[in-house]
Design a protein around this nucleic acid. Structure first.
Lengths: 191, 191
DNA sequence: AAAATGACCGAATTAGTTTTTTGGTCAACT
DNA sequence: AGTTGACCAAAAAACTAATTCGGTCATTTT
């Protein structure tokens, strides 16, 4: 259309600014300027700064969903699928400027809005994983278990291995992580 | 002995103050007063405040070691032993005023000295668990694996379940945690 | 003389105050 | 009806003054 889609401009400008400077350091004046729009215009689309931010987080969650669903292959084994999903989520977080900035802001400043947003993101990842796990249970590939707890444990274990472990040790290779994941969670330690 | 053991007085006073107010909020004047000792005397035993603190953390680590070793029973199964150790560590953290205060200070203020101290504590717990795991491997109770990574994963998973899970869900019963621990780590999910 | 002390010091933290910035509004404008 | 930016109260940042703190060391005590 010939008429400029101001809402789109605003969202794009805001996404860019949040990615570059984080939530707190992004001002509404800045967003307005970046979007070539009067500040008041923003408030015709979004009631508050937080609502604008949440809108962008929702897109992010959607993007992750697409990423995760793209990684699934119904003909592959549960192990392959789970591992592929986790790797993609990790790669996504590592490459997506917005998540990097927000993880950083959450860690360094503990901005309340950001903490809540990241919790929503984590929760949505767990929801996607839950579906995958339920499918595997139905197919009889894995034992009956609470899909939500299981998804939760998987995600936590994965991030422990890729993030926490590296704080005091040389990082684990991608292949190693897969193997550990397989050993601990799928096959079990018992002889 | 008739002569007062000033070092002991100092350490006790400091331990009490760190437990009550945390690391940052404890002043050397306060410790001196609590110990009924001139401030200079503290510095004949400890070069800095941090050295005094580290001394107390070392005692804490020793206490945890005793707690852990008391939980071990060579005639029991690996599952029983590991679970008992983790429960004791958790109970210890929950009941020991000093650890409560320090975990809180680490979370709320991120005091550098405290963060490092808590890392040392975690590391030492992992070292004790490592020994237990190595024993289990030698006995053939569990598969061959890197004992350190395994201890790390176990501790992280345990605390995920007892701490992180409760942030957004009703807490898991002690028995449930044992079962989950058994399912995920020992038996494995595969059918 | 060996051990203990607390007044003292510079550095760092905190409290108090002023200035600037920011999220959000709204009367004017297109 | 849709858009705008000057404007406002409130929050944050910057600045300053005052206090506190870790650590020292000359003096006192034993």
């Amino acid at each position: 259309m010939a008429i400029i889609d101001r809402k789109k401009l605003i969202v794009e400008a805001a996404a860019k600014s949040f990615s570059l400077y984080g939530y707190k350091a992004t001002t509404m004046d800045q967003v307005a300027k970046l979007a070539n729009v009067g500040k008041g215009t923003i408030y015709t689309f979004f009631k508050t700064k937080e609502e604008l931010f949440d809108d962008i987080i929702n897109s992010l969650i959607g993007d992750i969903r697409i990423e995760v669903e793209g990684a699934m292959d119904d003909s592959a084994s549960i192990l392959e699928n789970l591992n592929r999903v986790l790797v993609r989520v990790y790669e996504f977080r590592k490459s997506h400027q917005l998540t990097i900035k927000l993880i950083q802001e959450e860690r360094d400043m503990g901005t309340q809005t950001v903490v809540e947003a990241m919790q929503r993101v984590e929760h949505s990842i767990i929801q996607y994983m839950k579906v995958i796990i339920q499918k595997a249970i139905d197919k009889g590939e894995i034992k009956a278990c609470d899909p939500e707890v299981t998804a939760f444990v998987m995600l936590k274990m994965y991030f422990s291995l890729v993030i926490d472990w590296q704080r005091n040790h040389p990082p684990l290779e991608k292949g190693e992580i897969t193997k550990l994941f397989e050993l601990y969670l799928l096959k079990g330690l018992l002889t």
